[in-house]
Nucleic acid binder design. Structure first.
Length: 465
RNA sequence: GGGCCCGUGGGGUAGCUUGGUAUCCUUGUAGCUUGGGGUGCUAUUGACUCCGGUUCAAAUCCGGGCGGGCCCA
């Protein structure tokens, strides 16, 4: 299956063949996480927990259901979500007086509680997160990990005394993002979304986008500054040092299972998945090369190496199935295991292990005594190489344009006067999504690509997945 | 939001036009063989998406649901 010429088919094929997800569950957009896929997700979640915990966020778990009365308190928010939420209308045989929303996101579940928890300026900042599933009734074509109706995600929610402190939180979120992405080897751009595309109820939204091989952009997360847009309707107030009652400023940050979709799309090749070592369920697989009469010594040595690596904390799999080695090579390549270790009599005689890198195909040997530092080093080189290559692709995908004729299938960068009218025209007439303006300002001098007025504002657009 | 296509063992398919016995590959299971890039042989399990209609008879024709995929906006 060719990734570059037919990305959509390639993606579906890989998800199935690598055993990441079973789409046959009989509800549209709700798939089964199969063991291999779920292991990847769990490792991603591990890095998320690690970075959020390290920055003083506390993990919580809120109920799945939200009373309609709470859900409807923030007007823009409800307008943004009411066409895509699931409702619980019955309990047993009784119709409910107050219908319940199955959370599409948890603002409206959390904020009534925040109003009880936040009393004093000494309660601030309040920084919490949860890793849960949310539900959105997608009407469009669904796709594993990328567009689903039950979404596994994390959401962090914070409350602050001042707008400046909330802004500091947004900056901290970028640092957290950077550290997580270093492990997943996923590049990203930070774009301030347009007014009409920001999160319903937000003051502003920064979208996190990563380029897919077909030139389209995949939104992998977002960070929002709410100011007091939610704290007012939800009455989240604190008493400051002078005894005055003020509304808290809030932020949220979330990323979903789309990260798994991004890993698949960004790194895979025609042979299958290529997993970044930090999230690979198996970082190395040992293939014993057995021929007649030597099964015992080879398997004994293979087990020994497996034990040594395992003890060192490396996730390793010894594939001792009764199959031909070639068949095993193909199996683990589809599944994206970063490092293959081959062990046969030839290696044992020379006291080495043969390795093959999944990312580059490079082949070599490691001496058996140095197997732990050797494997650790190669895994780190693979991670660095994958990250660097992905960033290069992300940057090369950007095309500077000064005309809307013959648009390439890339991320487009151009001048924009900033007006809503030009923005809508750009989107509607060219089948593009205006992703927004760079969060970190970029020097630019030119003309608005739609109306031609001189501008120093630069914007990005792409077709979205 | 609009249009088009599709649904047959676990996966991929033939059969459908012209209604009557469901094809092949792969996978699974058992055994032998083989073993540094998909060994080979033998035996064997396993399917017409659901509901309704037409008909003596439906995988096949008609309608709807559910599910899958593509294109356009």
């Amino acid at each position: 299956m060719e990734k570059d010429t037919n990305f959509n088919e390639w993606y579906n094929d890989i998800v199935e063949k690598a055993g990441l997800s079973d789409k046959r569950y009989p509800i549209k957009g709700m798939n089964v996480w199969t063991p291999y896929g779920w292991k990847i997700m769990r490792h991603v979640d591990t890095y998320i927990r690690k970075e959020l915990d390290a920055t003083g966020h506390d993990e919580v778990c809120f109920p799945l259901l939200i009373p309609e009365t709470e859900f409807k308190k923030e007007k823009d928010h409800i307008k943004g979500f009411d066409s895509e939420v699931y409702w619980v209308t019955h309990a047993g045989l009784n119709e409910l007086d107050v219908r319940l929303v199955v959370r599409p996101t948890s603002e409206t579940a959390m904020y009534p509680m925040f109003s009880l928890w936040v009393r004093s300026h000494t309660d601030l900042p309040l920084k919490i997160y949860q890793i849960v599933n949310t539900f959105r009734y997608e009407t469009k074509q669904t796709r594993s990990f990328i567009r689903v109706r039950e979404i596994h995600f994390f959401e962090s929610h914070t409350c602050h005394a001042t707008e400046e402190d909330a802004q500091r939180q947004v900056e901290e979120d970028f640092e957290i993002l950077g550290k997580i992405m270093e492990q997943l080897c996923i590049p990203y751009s930070l774009l301030v979304r347009t007014e009409w595309d920001k999160f319903p109820g937000a003051y502003y939204t920064v979208g996190l986008d990563t380029a897919m091989p077909n030139g389209r952009m995949l939104q992998i997360g977002s960070i929002h500054h709410y100011r007091t847009n939610f704290s007012i309707p939800y009455n989240i107030t604190y008493e400051d040092a002078d005894g005055e009652h003020k509304h808290a400023h809030q932020t949220t940050y979330g990323m979903s299972e789309r990260l798994v979709g991004a890993i698949i799309g960004v790194h895979g090749d025609d042979k299958g998945l290529i997993l970044p070592p930090p999230v690979a369920p198996f970082q190395a697989v040992i293939i014993p090369i057995i021929s007649k009469g030597n099964a015992e010594p080879v398997l004994k040595e293979a087990n020994k190496i497996r034990d040594v690596l395992e003890k060192a904390g490396i996730r390793v799999k010894l594939d001792d199935r009764d199959e031909r080695p070639g068949s095993k090579f193909y199996d683990w390549e589809i599944r994206g295991v970063p490092l293959r270790l081959e062990l046969g009599m030839k290696d044992i005689e020379k006291n080495v292990v043969t390795f093959v890198r999944r990312d580059s195909g490079e082949k070599g040997t490691i001496s058996s005594e140095d197997i732990v530092p050797g494997v650790e080093m190669i895994l780190e080189i693979i991670r660095e190489g994958m990250f660097a290559k992905a960033w290069k692709q992300q940057k090369e995908n950007v095309a500077d344009i000064d005309s809307l004729k013959d648009l390439p299938e890339r991320t487009l960068r151009f001048g924009w006067c900033g007006s809503e009218e030009c923005g809508h025209r750009l989107e509607d007439e060219n089948n593009l999504k205006l992703l927004g303006t760079p969060y970190i300002p970029e020097k630019f001098k030119g003309k608005c690509i739609v109306c031609g007025k001189p501008t120093e504002k630069v914007a990005y657009a792409a077709r979205s997945m």
